[in-house]
Design a protein around this nucleic acid. Structure first.
Length: 308
RNA sequence: CGCUGGGUAGAGCAGUCAGGUAGCUCGUCGGUCUCAUAAUCCGAAAUGCGUCGGUUCGAAUCCGACCCCAGCCA
């Protein structure tokens, strides 16, 4: 198979290393990304990470509101293959079938599991100890195309959403090169997914981050790990302020859920529906993240009355 | 000029509204107690209140400008 002329579709940070790997070895005709959005403290129009990097690399960037708008330009480029990773926009068939050999997509889960918008976070929320990344053919149905290559990854105690994203980001860069080589030498082929095994995950919402002490310590810990970097996890004080929680440890203890059991050691210890959680890293409103000890130094005496 | 909160000893905070020369918890150092100790008790060091300027006899506290940090927003 002849693969020389590439298009890259991506927006999110996780897709940056893959673009870099591709741009270094191959001819990237154009990079398609999301248009600039207002973001950050000043709400100013900011290019997405992939666009920013693509410009630095001197690549042609196209950021239409809808991909359809640039289909003619893409046609003129005569691409052999499009690589898609966290593009964040729906691609109509006319686009993903436009390159001579179609389009392939990177997806950070072991498909057919966790098709959809939040594969990394959902796998962590479910408490999985293993996940992975897949490369598949783009098809009309989201994440349902034929599989080309997968790589398994184990997830440990210390792995939260942020770390897993980093790992998948660099893994994507490795895997894409492997996939291209496999395709050129025709060693790899596309195999259909097992539809019976398929599961879907939707977008997370802000409210998914609220900690409910009535749940078990274990599921709360999964929540804390999975809701990074967004929406984060937090609990509310009586005055409505939100204390974010970044890292916790499960400890044995039984008491009414939500009870503050201890204010010493590595952090506050709070009873849950099943077991207790030691809060090891937190962030009060307007402050930066701090470890549990620091938190107790400043907030310890307030906490007992302020916990609802 | 999107909105909001914040910058005070090594860390986390109080004090700012009613200006008078800085306090709490933890840590650090020394000592005490103890078989021992991260536990107890006693004591000490350290800072000079984000920056610049103004008002004032006097400012962390009032006024002005600026810098930095964090949250909201998907």
């Amino acid at each position: 198979m002849t693969l020389e002329r590439f298009l890259y579709f991506g927006s999110d940070e996780i897709a940056v290393p893959t673009l870099e790997a591709l741009a270094e070895r191959e001819q990237v005709l154009a990079v398609l990304t999301q248009p600039d959005r207002p973001s950050g403290r000043k709400r100013k129009l900011t290019p997405c990470p992939v666009k920013a990097r693509a410009l630095e690399l001197g690549l042609q960037v196209l950021d239409p509101e809808k991909v359809g708008e640039v289909s003619e330009q893409l046609q003129d480029l005569q691409p052999d293959l499009a690589v898609v990773f966290a593009y964040g926009q729906y691609m109509p068939r006319s686009i993903f079938e436009l390159p001579r050999h179609g389009s392939i997509n990177l997806h950070p889960s072991l498909l057919p599991k966790y098709r959809g918008a939040s594969p990394i976070q959902s796998a962590l929320l479910d408490g999985l100890e293993e996940s992975g990344i897949s490369i598949l053919k783009v098809s009309a149905k989201m994440d349902a195309g034929d599989l080309l290559l997968q790589r398994r990854v184990s997830m440990g105690e210390e792995d939260d959403g942020v770390r897993m994203r980093q790992r998948f980001a660099s893994l994507g860069a490795e895997l894409i090169l492997e996939a291209l080589e496999g395709l050129r030498e025709e060693r790899l082929s596309f195999v259909p997914q097992d539809e019976a095994e398929a599961t879907e995950c939707g977008k997370l919402s802000k409210e998914d981050g609220l900690l409910d002490w009535k749940r078990s310590a274990e599921s709360l810990r999964h929540q804390v790990r999975g809701c990074q970097p967004w929406p984060g996890t937090w609990f509310e004080l009586e005055n409505g302020e939100r204390i974010k929680v970044f890292r916790v440890r499960i400890e044995a203890a039984t008491a009414k859920a939500g009870t503050l059991l201890e204010l010493k050691g590595d952090g506050p210890l709070i009873a849950t529906g099943e077991g207790a959680l030691r809060l090891l890293e937190l962030q009060p409103p307007g402050k930066s993240r701090m470890d549990g000890r620091s938190f107790m130094n400043g907030y310890g005496r307030l906490l007992p009355e302020m916990l609802p």
